[in-house]
Design a binder for these strands. Structure first.
Lengths: 310, 310
DNA sequence: CACGGCGATATCTTTCAGGTATTGCCGTTC
DNA sequence: GAACGGCAATACCTGAAAGATATCGCCGTG
């Protein structure tokens, strides 16, 4: 049995007349008669009563037609759904990210993406850089925001683009002596109780600070260790000491707190967007488009990475 | 798009391999490749990724396949459902009947039919003979049990078969002087308070009684009029008088009551089964079969009525 | 009784599903 | 790195069947 038979039966039921139904189908009457006859033979039951007043479905015909209409609806929906999926309007995007990405690029990216692709199911997984990398390689994530390029086995199958530069800044309470300064020097830091993060950013920040404070980094030994940047800022606000963290923490709105640059400027690993090089998923492409529109300076770099593979 | 395309896509998704899927479908590999290519062109999206490891649906392919599987299920169910409807296993039967039919043939018929055709929706409508007749002609009923053959416009389009003979019997309380008698004579009735029905059976019963009691039917003038046979029996049980009703009321189980024949035996109109002569509905045929099996003496009469039209 | 509308049948044409043979592309293996 | 092999795509051919045209048979109607 073919979809044609269903379409013909439905048209015949609608027009109650072989000639008119055939006309509506764009075929002549004899082929329609034959197709209906074939259908009835295959089903093993008469589906239509031919009377002088018109052609009407039998009880078996009604039962058949109910299913036929649903089948045709499914077939039509199949094409529509496939098209929507192909254009990336529906589907799923599994995003792995480090916690601090929630500070800067993610809020704008996610709200824009959610507006542009309301029917894409977003799955957000906060995880460390190394786990994101292996999850990407294993196909458990579609895209990731990590600190520095992904590392580990299979990393060469990934495409990575830096989406933002980052460096160490300090945060102090508004009452703190440094609060009025535009920047804080390494020497000033050595004389203060410090607050650093134990989160994903921590090793990078600590490494940066070691470089900043020089051989005499004993100040780090006594540093207060916070769970995340929010805690750093909270502790700094209450005057416990000078908080040190990634420049992205500036975006956390918090009264009674001042952010200062640290001199010399101490770079941190870039925030990096990465995904499987062979992934051609339209949802991913849509997400990359959103990234491109949200982070203007990323556009060219992304195009560079994508061109050679297409 | 044809069902073939859906079947091929589903098979390809299942086998993840053009050659093996084609084998399972009983065709060669090139036609399968072509059909899938045609399908992808029509849908306007690539549905399968051909990799060295195998052939796997894209996101669009997954969306398409979900619909395709449902469409194929509907198509398969269409044939099954049509077959069941054609065999009268599913559907609807609208039955009109006079109240007293609930006493005798209906309980057995309905319970048997319900057992044999559990998926047929039975619609029961108690109504007078004349309304059943017009409802049958108008196509609002499929079959009816009436008192006497259907009458009124269009009655000649109906087929009728008597399903049971009937006559007047009497009912009295166990304490009544007539209680021990096998039969009651017309003369005895003339000397007693009588209870008759005002229901559908009433005109027929009254007409029968008039014939029975002769010109001197003044006893009827003073008769108590009950709503239905249950009331007649109840009143008779309480000693109000002698109840008169159709012999079918014997089937009402009730202690403290005795039924007597009335002499001379006074026939009532037959209980008649009727349906539209042109109705070929399998559910109706199944119902007629049940009637035939439940009321053995009806079989031949039904066959007589059906043969010439088939 | 002739006519006209409608579905079925007969016959021919054309399209296209499916078969066979072959090519092209990789990945694997000596 | 060259030969091999597995796999999908392509080229080309064949046959079945969808569809067109012409006609028939059946009724109901004027």
């Amino acid at each position: 049995m073919e979809a044609r038979h269903l379409r013909y039966a439905v048209a015949l039921a609608e027009h109650e007349h072989f000639g008119r139904a055939a006309g509506a189908l764009g075929i002549a009457q004899p082929p329609l008669s034959k197709q209906i006859a074939d259908l009835e033979r295959e089903v093993g039951a008469r589906l239509f009563d031919r009377t002088r007043q018109g052609v009407f479905p039998t009880a078996a015909g009604e039962a058949f037609l109910a299913r036929a209409r649903r089948a045709l609806d499914e077939i039509a929906a199949a094409t529509v759904d496939a098209g929507r999926a192909a254009r990336g309007e529906t589907g799923r995007l599994r995003l792995g990210f480090i916690a601090s990405a929630l500070l800067d690029p993610l809020p704008g990216v996610l709200s824009r993406f959610g507006r542009e692709r309301p029917d894409v199911r977003l799955e957000l997984h906060e995880m460390a850089t190394s786990r994101s990398s292996s999850a990407l390689v294993a196909g458990e994530l579609d895209v990731a925001l990590t600190l520095g390029p992904p590392r580990g086995a299979g990393a060469e199958q990934l495409v990575s683009v830096p989406v933002g530069r980052d460096h160490v800044i300090a945060v102090v309470s508004a009452a703190h002596p440094y609060a009025g300064q535009r920047s804080v020097s390494a020497g000033q830091l050595r004389r203060q109780p410090l607050i650093v993060s134990a989160g994903e950013d921590e090793p990078a920040v600590v490494a940066g600070l070691r470089a900043l404070l020089g051989a005499d980094s004993s100040a780090l030994g006594g540093a207060t260790v916070a769970r995340d940047v929010h805690t750093i800022i909270g502790l700094a606000a209450s005057g416990v000491g000078v908080g040190l963290g990634p420049s992205r923490m500036r975006t956390v709105p918090r009264p009674g707190v001042r952010f200062c640059e640290v001199t010399p400027r101490t770079p941190l690993p870039d925030l990096v967007l990465s995904f499987a090089a062979r992934d051609r998923s339209p949802v991913l492409r849509a997400f990359l488009d959103t990234i491109r529109k949200t982070c203007p300076d990323v556009g060219a770099a992304l195009d560079d990475r994508l061109r050679p593979h297409t």
